[in-house]
Lab assay of single mutants.
Amino acid sequence: TTIEWNGTKITVDNPQKAKELAKKIAKKLGLTVKVHGNTITIE
């Protein structure tokens, strides 16, 4: 699972952990999480 935001890509083996990490990042930055299959985008 890949997390993408602002040109940065982070690959996380565990999809559940990836989703939790994305939510934490999005919350800190005041952004939203969008899931597209194996890609999680923070916008």
Rank of each mutant, 00 (worst) to 15 (best):
T1W: 10
T1S: 08
T2H: 08
T2P: 04
T2N: 09
T2R: 05
T2L: 10
T2Q: 07
T2F: 05
I3V: 09
I3E: 09
I3G: 09
I3S: 05
I3P: 13
E4G: 04
W5G: 08
W5L: 15
W5Q: 08
W5S: 09
N6F: 15
N6Q: 13
N6G: 15
N6A: 08
G7D: 10
G7M: 03
G7W: 06
G7K: 04
G7A: 04
G7S: 06
T8I: 15
T8Y: 12
K9R: 10
K9E: 10
K9M: 14
I10D: 00
I10A: 01
I10K: 01
I10T: 02
I10F: 04
T11K: 11
T11W: 15
T11G: 02
T11R: 10
T11D: 04
V12H: 02
V12P: 01
V12F: 12
V12S: 02
D13E: 12
D13G: 11
D13M: 14
D13T: 12
D13S: 14
N14G: 06
N14L: 05
N14Q: 03
N14A: 03
N14F: 04
P15L: 13
P15H: 14
P15N: 08
Q16G: 09
Q16T: 11
Q16S: 09
Q16Y: 09
Q16K: 14
K17S: 07
K17I: 13
K17P: 01
K17T: 10
K17D: 07
K17R: 11
A18R: 01
A18Y: 03
A18V: 04
A18Q: 00
A18W: 04
A18E: 00
K19E: 11
K19M: 15
K19H: 13
E20W: 10
E20I: 12
E20T: 09
E20A: 14
L21W: 09
L21F: 07
L21D: 01
A22W: 02
A22V: 04
A22L: 05
A22T: 01
A22M: 03
K23R: 12
K23F: 08
K23N: 12
K23I: 12
K24G: 05
K24M: 10
K24S: 09
I25D: 00
I25L: 11
I25R: 00
I25K: 00
I25W: 04
I25Y: 02
A26N: 05
A26G: 07
A26R: 14
A26W: 03
A26L: 05
A26M: 07
A26T: 06
A26F: 04
A26Q: 05
K27Y: 03
K27D: 14
K27E: 14
K27A: 11
K27H: 10
K27Q: 12
K28E: 13
K28H: 15
L29A: 08
L29T: 14
L29F: 11
L29K: 08
G30E: 03
L31R: 06
L31W: 06
L31G: 15
L31V: 12
L31N: 03
T32F: 03
T32R: 06
T32I: 13
V33N: 00
V33Y: 03
K34R: 12
K34D: 03
V35E: 05
V35I: 15
G37W: 03
N38L: 06
N38Y: 02
N38S: 10
N38T: 08
T39Q: 08
I40S: 00
I40F: 01
T41W: 13
T41P: 00
T41V: 13
T41M: 11
T41G: 02
T41R: 10
T41E: 05
I42T: 01
I42E: 00
I42A: 01
E43H: 10
E43D: 08
E43C: 15
